[in-house]
Design a protein around this nucleic acid. Structure first.
Lengths: 335, 335
DNA sequence: CTGAAAGCGCTTACAG
DNA sequence: CTGAAAGCGCTTACAG
């Protein structure tokens, strides 16, 4: 019932090889033939069967997005889906499809990965950080399967990866404050063991220092990232005899506590004090007073990851290990 | 290089047909042969090439999740991804893959849908409400392509759909209050044109009435769903000479305003007043005082959708148009 | 119980 | 510039 390449060939009075060549834009076909074939295609409203094409070409034009989907993943980790959307957009542009593979219910390490590679149901793999382990990394590198890992792996590996650069985001916060003439700043972070928090702090302090602003230790506070502790921390800061003119919060939850404290002290943002936080999600929209947000565009990171994977598939020798980031400063505006 | 069915056949000393039959659990093969073939498969570590299988079988074992992915979709609409995860889980269990198709960049109505159907890259389609239109509905019903739509379409159609039942959620709220002996209740909704809000209100009032509790009109308030209006509305309610003993908010944003007002009036939850909201997402976790949450399990709805689609694919004559819902009452506990 | 053969719908050397 | 033919790796009537 469905139209095949043979129907088109018959209609155009040529062989299927010729139709195929027209379909694939070979330059060796005479313009007249191309025309006839195109007419036939149009007339019959023919679309190649993608399964047959992929099978004959020994390529799937499909990429797997490998991840671990816990309960409520969509709410707890919307960033992952934003990345996925970015990946999907660039793949679609390049005529690749994206399929979702969840390793959460794997009965042993590497079950899904092995299956994907053995069954040849994808030409490449985008691996979310939640789905990586030493075992899986080994499987992939051993097979030399085209891949890109989102997020720095926690271990030594030959994998290709891409990650956000929190140091740069910290720098962006500092630069924003400096360019707005805030020199006396404070930073409320998470625990000292919180990697992201420390990276942001590092970038922040580094830039402040490089511009000649010294941040005294009493203005760098560490918390358990709860609203309560950050409320207390902010109050302490604001009660200093030389209280800061700007407060940078390392997370949205911290910013919630800080906002309460700012309100409690009856300070106005930005007149009395500058108020910054990292990440637009999940609460920046409803924090009152509204903070300036340093956000990271992970959708764009997904696009970058997709581009790199496509490049790797063209050129398997390519090694990619890189940081990417586009910190965006959003000064109290609603998106 | 990769092992094929012929390698296995040679190793086992049988024909490829026989290997195929063993692979597909035909009962006509002698146990001895089955054994030999299985040994060969094991020895060579053979996995069938899924592309070849799907091509020979004329089936893809793939389902498309059709949606429209705007910017920041992951943050604005995490429910959609939760549904997708539910769909994916049930499909994976049934050996189907799920691939994501975004119609956002389609240059004309139905472009992606037509392609998916013509190229035969999927056996069926789960369509998110954001991706449906009259044109697309027509294309799908004309082709009789197996599908299930998430969300009630806004128009008359032959499509199969599944949707949440907000009336039931409203009932759940009422039942919770009644069983906890709150009879004098108030409801703060969105605009009267807000379909979901009105459905919830309808279920809520219906159940209250059926239990003999009458809710006076002055205790049913409509707002623009902003924190500001709901704050005002709540203050007004609490200043009534006969103020309600329970307030039901139709959304998280409304609940934010109500929480502020409750705090302002120095009332305690649940001692002085009961405080309910619909939806766990996005803010229920940080609303202070903590509301009781009536949530809907859309992950489960995804599972239901997947099951129905699989049934439709087995039995194309099946018509499905149904409401589903699992309202979950979560009284002030953190998940 | 087993196997030879056709077929799924394309692509691609290769020959002409 | 064009086409016959082999091939991609399976499945499945059909014959025996």
């Amino acid at each position: 019932m469905p139209i095949t390449i043979s129907d088109v060939a018959r209609e155009a009075g040529v062989s299927t090889s010729t139709v195929s060549k027209v379909l694939n834009n070979w330059t060796t076909i005479s313009p007249a033939t191309v025309d006839r074939v195109k007419h036939a295609i149009h007339k019959l409203n023919y679309t190649p069967n993608s399964r047959a094409v992929s099978f004959a070409r020994q390529t799937t034009q499909n990429i797997v997005f490998l991840t671990s989907l816990g309960k409520n993943e969509a709410y707890h980790n919307p960033h992952m889906f934003d990345i996925m959307c970015g990946v999907n957009s660039i793949l679609a542009k390049n005529n690749y499809t994206l399929s979702l593979v969840d390793i959460f219910n794997d009965s042993y390490q590497g079950e899904s990965v092995t299956r994907v590679m053995a069954q040849k149901c994808a030409d490449g793999m985008v691996i979310h950080g939640s789905a990586i382990s030493k075992e899986i990394a080994d499987l992939i590198t051993k097979q030399q399967f085209p891949h890109i890992l989102i997020g720095h792996p926690g271990f030594e590996t030959q994998l290709c990866w891409i990650d956000t650069n929190h140091v740069l985001a910290g720098q962006a916060a500092a630069e924003y404050l400096i360019s707005n003439n805030y020199g006396d700043v404070a930073f409320i972070g998470g625990k000292k063991t919180d990697h992201i928090s420390m990276q942001r702090l590092k970038g922040f302090l580094g830039t402040m220092h490089s511009y000649g602003y010294l941040v005294s230790p009493e203005k760098i506070l560490y918390t358990n990232s709860s609203r309560e502790e950050s409320y207390e921390a902010t109050i302490r800061l604001l009660e200093l005899k030389k209280s800061p003119s700007a407060i940078v919060c390392e997370s949205n939850t911290i910013a919630l506590g800080t906002a309460r404290a700012i309100e409690k002290m009856k300070l106005e943002v930005p007149k009395d004090i500058a108020f910054l936080t990292f990440d637009a999600y999940p609460y920046s929209e409803i924090i009152d007073p509204k903070p300036t947000v340093i956000d990271i565009n992970v959708y764009d990171m997904g696009i970058q990851a997709g581009i790199m994977l496509l490049r790797k598939m063209e050129n398997p020798a390519l090694q990619i290990q890189t940081y990417t980031t586009l910190p965006v400063v959003n000064a109290g505006k609603t998106t």
